[in-house]
Simulated scan of single mutants.
Amino acid sequence: MSLTRRRSLTLLLAASLSGAPALAQMGPQLDLPRVQLTVGMYRIDVQVASTPLQRQIGLMNRRDMPPTEGMLFVFEQPGEQCFWMKNTLIPLTAAFIADDGTIVNLADMKPLDESNHCSAKPVRYVLEMNQGWFAEHHVKAGHKLGGSVFQAR
């Protein structure tokens, strides 16, 4: 079991034991810090999920997301990152991103699907966008994203 998965299970167990509401019942998180990213000539406004709870909730329970927005998941260190779509209502594409901002691989994900979608190699960042955004903008594995978050490490 990966470290990320163990952390997620520990978080869920702690939440259930503490009487905290189940993650599925929580509303969408809309107040996370935001940063601007670029890829080529395109700008993306992203919410940053950097704590275990923020990453666990992610885009759950969102009914829509503006076309130029996304969510950037930031992990403490590179590792195999795997994502699923439990309680996520909109189709997304996950871009698994190396420390320098280079997209390692992309994965299309279906709403409410609990299949794992994993990084092809250890990464520190995962960017979720509305499904189709990367294809429409001809952004593929190997392209590099810009932004202060990638320069901070």
Rank of each mutant, 00 (worst) to 15 (best):
residue 60 M to N: 04
residue 84 W to V: 04
residue 74 V to C: 05
residue 66 P to C: 00
residue 87 N to P: 02
residue 41 M to L: 09
residue 37 L to F: 11
residue 93 T to Q: 07
residue 51 T to M: 08
residue 83 F to S: 00
residue 66 P to S: 04
residue 37 L to E: 14
residue 87 N to I: 01
residue 60 M to R: 07
residue 49 A to H: 13
residue 50 S to Q: 14
residue 87 N to H: 04
residue 104 V to I: 15
residue 56 Q to K: 05
residue 42 Y to C: 06
residue 48 V to M: 11
residue 77 Q to L: 06
residue 97 I to S: 01
residue 88 T to K: 06
residue 90 I to D: 01
residue 87 N to V: 03
residue 73 F to W: 01
residue 51 T to P: 04
residue 32 L to N: 13
residue 41 M to S: 14
residue 71 M to A: 09
residue 65 M to P: 03
residue 62 R to Y: 02
residue 46 V to I: 15
residue 100 D to E: 15
residue 102 T to K: 08
residue 101 G to K: 06
residue 92 L to I: 05
residue 47 Q to N: 08
residue 52 P to E: 12
residue 68 T to W: 14
residue 111 P to Q: 11
residue 92 L to S: 06
residue 52 P to Q: 15
residue 91 P to A: 09
residue 104 V to K: 05
residue 111 P to A: 07
residue 54 Q to P: 01
residue 63 R to I: 03
residue 89 L to G: 00
residue 92 L to Y: 09
residue 94 A to F: 11
residue 112 L to C: 04
residue 99 D to W: 01
residue 91 P to G: 09
residue 56 Q to W: 03
residue 114 E to P: 03
residue 97 I to F: 04
residue 45 D to Y: 13
residue 55 R to D: 02
residue 74 V to S: 06
residue 50 S to T: 07
residue 34 R to A: 15
residue 63 R to Q: 05
residue 34 R to D: 11
residue 62 R to T: 03
residue 113 D to F: 08
residue 88 T to V: 10
residue 62 R to K: 03
residue 55 R to I: 14
residue 65 M to F: 12
residue 55 R to P: 07
residue 59 L to I: 00
residue 42 Y to N: 12
residue 34 R to G: 11
residue 104 V to Y: 03
residue 72 L to W: 07
residue 51 T to K: 11
residue 105 N to V: 00
residue 114 E to L: 04
residue 89 L to K: 00
residue 60 M to S: 13
residue 104 V to M: 07
residue 36 Q to W: 14
residue 102 T to W: 05
residue 71 M to T: 11
residue 62 R to A: 02
residue 42 Y to S: 09
residue 35 V to P: 08
residue 77 Q to S: 11
residue 42 Y to A: 12
residue 39 V to E: 10
residue 37 L to C: 11
residue 75 F to A: 02
residue 80 E to Q: 08
residue 55 R to N: 12
residue 75 F to E: 08
residue 75 F to G: 00
residue 45 D to S: 15
residue 92 L to A: 05
residue 77 Q to G: 00
residue 43 R to H: 13
residue 52 P to V: 14
residue 76 E to V: 10
residue 68 T to V: 13
residue 41 M to R: 13
residue 108 D to K: 14
residue 67 P to N: 08
residue 46 V to H: 14
residue 101 G to P: 06
residue 46 V to T: 15
residue 110 K to Y: 05
residue 69 E to P: 04
residue 36 Q to E: 14
residue 77 Q to E: 12
residue 57 I to G: 01
residue 51 T to V: 12
residue 116 N to L: 11
residue 49 A to N: 06
residue 109 M to L: 08
residue 90 I to G: 03
residue 73 F to V: 01
residue 114 E to S: 10
residue 52 P to A: 15
residue 57 I to N: 04
residue 37 L to S: 11
residue 115 S to K: 10
residue 58 G to I: 05
residue 89 L to E: 06
residue 72 L to V: 12
residue 39 V to Q: 08
residue 99 D to R: 12
residue 57 I to D: 02
residue 89 L to N: 01
residue 107 A to W: 11
residue 70 G to K: 02
residue 58 G to Q: 06
residue 76 E to D: 04
residue 74 V to Q: 01
residue 57 I to E: 10
residue 69 E to Q: 15
